[in-house]
Amino acid sequence: MYQGMLAETVTITGYHDDEIGAYLARPLGPGPFPGVLVIHHAPGWDTATKEIARRFAYEGYLAIAPNLYHRFGPDLAPDDAAAAARANGWITTDQFLGDAGGALRFLRALPVSNGKVGTIGYCSGGRQSFLAACELPIDAAVDCYGAFVVSSSPPELPFRMEPIIDRAPKISCPILGLFGVEDKNPSPDEVAQIDAELTRLGKEHEFHSFENAGHGFFAVDRPMYRVEAAVQGWRLLLDFYGRHLS
């Protein structure tokens, strides 16, 4: 069986109609293919994020990862852009939603799109994937150990993260949550709070918490990587997308 993909940087129209960079990986062939918006984590639009996009293309998805730090410098190396983000208070919620919305429109406009798009994010991106489920027209969302959904960052910090669980009544798609029981942020107690609130609101969701795994267990290039949780997590999320994005 022939299999191929195309991976390249593209320009999309995001928040305030700004043009920003994005990494697009897609299978070759006539489609139609579902789409996935891959949200990079706080360390930036890095190699790991682009590897994840290519994995989704391999699995038959149109995957796009917008450079959420584009405005700090479109040609900056990912670590330099992340340094600029740290120094300048990261990015605003409105800017994220504007850029994510632009990425969704870009995916759905591709001739080979089947019109359905999911989101996925890890760590800070997990929180943003949850946020997208609340605020954007998506068909499925995956939250991988997103912190600060029900809690706030410490008040003494100059850049404070606020909880977003109050937006949950607006969720309009199924959510898959993947967590590690050894994680401190989100802790198992926080995960239970999110689970209970989504149940109370009648929002379709499924949460899985893995033993012997903490924060970041999908990250293949860090000590926190946990092979059993990561392999099982990939199986679960591909099954989830298969049910909701086909």
């Binding site: 706080a42 360390p43 930036g44 670590d79 340094a83 740290r86 120094a87 760590c123 970041g216 860090r222």
Partner: peptide, 21 residues
Amino acid sequence: VVAVDHPFHAPVDHALIVDFV
């Protein structure tokens, strides 16, 4: 600019990150 977060290069889960600018 001092942070404690995921590093970009150091082979650890979290690091003290200092940017002298």
